Amino acid sequence: MQLIFHGHACVSLGLPDGGGTLVIDPGTYSDTTAALTGAAAVLVTHDHPDHVDVPAVVEHLGAAPDAQVWATAPAAEALRAGGAPGDRVHQVAPGQVLEIAGAHVTVGGGDHALIHPEIPRAVNVTYLVEAGGASVFHPGDSYEAPAALPAAGLDVLLLPVAGPWMKLAEAIDFTRSVPARTVVPIHEALLSEIGLTMVGARLDTARLSGEYTYSRLASGEALAV
């Protein structure tokens, strides 16, 4: 697979064997135009706008008649209300295993991480994507680990590093609990360059004695998986 980071929580995965491109969480803080270009499938972890730009996804579905979306129930409803064709927006729930464009996708999670007890928690799912012998895990807005890791080990962990629901200690513990060969920071739009540098220094393998590569990507930058 080829992973391309499109800013904040959005990545696209170029699938092998002509499967096309699978996009995860094309939200309002991301370059949705680049992410959705040529996308055969879209996965949405939850309905917050920084994870699903409804007008952009609806426009893409109008321009690409074969494209399909898989999303939580609230996100699917928001897309349908925004004009998405109902038969091409599919509701997902934790425990499902999907075959999408040649990729094996395991749905996990269930709840958005707690922001505050008085703020209702969104429905949030995680996606473990496996294709061509490679694997990528996207937790959405949670530190919910996958129920099981691939037998060959996880290739890429997409790691949220900033948000009103987290602290850096949780990101460090999550990195340690979900071993991966490469850790790519996501959910970083709220951080300045100073903040990104600080986070990177504390998640660096030299400090944590990890056996992974911490790979910060600029928007539009690709990583071979």
Rank of each mutant, 00 (worst) to 15 (best):
L3Y: 04
L3P: 09
H6G: 08
H8W: 14
V11Y: 05
P16A: 14
D17E: 15
T28C: 08
S30N: 04
D31W: 04
T37L: 10
A39Q: 05
A39S: 08
L43K: 03
T45R: 02
T45K: 02
T45G: 11
H46M: 10
H48M: 02
D50R: 03
V52N: 05
V52I: 14
L61H: 09
G62K: 11
T72S: 15
P74K: 11
R80V: 15
G83I: 11
P85M: 06
V92Q: 08
I100A: 10
A101M: 03
G109L: 10
L114T: 14
I115H: 13
P120Y: 09
R121I: 07
A122K: 11
L128R: 02
A131Y: 07
G133V: 03
H138Q: 09
D141P: 00
A145Q: 04
L157Q: 02
L158R: 03
L159R: 01
A162C: 12
P164N: 14
K167H: 15
L168V: 07
A171D: 04
D173W: 08
F174W: 07
S177P: 01
S177T: 07
V184S: 00
P185W: 03
E188T: 12
E188Q: 14
T197C: 13
A201M: 10
A206Q: 09
A206H: 05
A206C: 00
R207W: 09
S209N: 14
E211V: 00
Y212D: 01
E221M: 02
